[in-house]
C-alpha cells in the first residue's frame, strides 16, 4: 500500500500510520504462526514464519524512509511531529517483537524433532495472552485511544505471572529428570521471548499514550516478574 504516490501532507501522515499498522499485522501473524508451529509441531509453518521476518525488516525501512521524508520536507509540529516520531519508535518495537517471534519459530524447529511434551500447553496460553496484548495495543494505535493503551500497559502483569508459573514448572521438571534439561531450556527461552514481547507491547502502549495525549504515562507500571529470585527447593522437587 506504500507504493502509491500520496501528494498531500495529510496523505503522507496517513500512509505512515497505515504502514505501522501493516507492520504490526505481519508481526502478529508471525507470532501467531510461531506459537501454532510449536503447538501443532508444524515445522513447515515454522520455516515460513522465519522467512516472513524479512517482510518486517522491509516495512521498517519503508517507515523510516517515510518518516525521514516528512521530517525533512514538511517540518512537522505538534501532533504531526508526535505521529512521525512515534511511528519510528513503534516500528522499532514491532521489529523486536518480530525477532522474538522468529526465535520462537526457530526453537519450534528444534523441539519438533524431540518427543511431544505436554509442557507446551502453558506456553500456548501465554502466547495467546501476549497476542491479545499486541492486538489491543495496535488497535489502540489505529484509534489513537490513550485509554485502551493504558489498559494494555497495566495488564502486562498477567503475562509476567504466567511466566513465573511456567518458569517454576519447567525448573521442577528439570530437577526431577535431567534428561529433560535441553528440551526445557528451549521452552524456557520461548517463555522468556514471550515475556519480552509483552514488554514491547507495553512500550508501544506508552508511545500510543504519548501520541494521543502529548505527555508520557506518569506512574510506574506494576511489575509481576519475580523469577529473578525464584528457586525450587530440592526436597520439594524430588
Amino acid at each position: 500500500m506504500s507504493e502509491h504516490t500520496v501528494k498531500s501532507y495529510e496523505g503522507e501522515l496517513e500512509a505512515i500510520s497505515t504502514s505501522v499498522a501493516q507492520m504490526g499485522g505481519v508481526a502478529e501473524a508471525l507470532l501467531q504462526g510461531a506459537i501454532d508451529a510449536l503447538q501443532r509441531r508444524d515445522s513447515a509453518l515454522a520455516d515460513r514464519m522465519i522467512e516472513s521476518d524479512r517482510r518486517i525488516d522491509e516495512l521498517e525501512r519503508v517507515i523510516e524512509g517515510q518518516a525521514v521524508k516528512i521530517l525533512a520536507l514538511r517540518q512537522p509540529v505538534g501532533v504531526d511531529l508526535r505521529l512521525t516520531v512515534t511511528a519510528l519508535r513503534i516500528s522499532n518495537e514491532i521489529e523486536r517483537i518480530g525477532d522474538l517471534a522468529k526465535n520462537i519459530a526457530k526453537r519450534a524447529l528444534v523441539l519438533n524433532r524431540e518427543n511431544p511434551v505436554r509442557l507446551t500447553q502453558g506456553l500456548v496460553r501465554m502466547g495467546r495472552e501476549c497476542l491479545s496484548q499486541i492486538k489491543a495495543v495496535l488497535d489502540a494505535y489505529a484509534a489513537r485511544d490513550a485509554e485502551s493503551a493504558m489498559a494494555v500497559w497495566r495488564r502486562d502483569e498477567e503475562i509476567d505471572e504466567l511466566y513465573n508459573s511456567i518458569f517454576r514448572e519447567l525448573l521442577t521438571y528439570m530437577m526431577e529428570d535431567p534428561r529433560t534439561i535441553s528440551l526445557a531450556t528451549h521452552l524456557l527461552f520461548v517463555a522468556k521471548n514471550l515475556e519480552r514481547a509483552g514488554d514491547h507491547a507495553t512500550n508501544i502502549a506508552e508511545q500510543v499514550y504519548y501520541l494521543a495525549k502529548g505527555a508520557y504515562i506518569g506512574e510506574d507500571r506494576p511489575k509481576g516478574d519475580a523469577t529473578a529470585s525464584a528457586s525450587v527447593p530440592y526436597e520439594q522437587a524430588s
Binding site: M1, E14, S17, T18, A21, Q22, G24, G25, V26, E28, A29, S52, R55, L138, A142
Partner: peptide
C-alpha cells in the same frame, strides 16, 4: 490496512 492488519 489501518484497521485490519492481516498480511495474507
Amino acid at each position: 490496512a489501518a484497521s485490519f492488519r492481516v498480511p495474507d
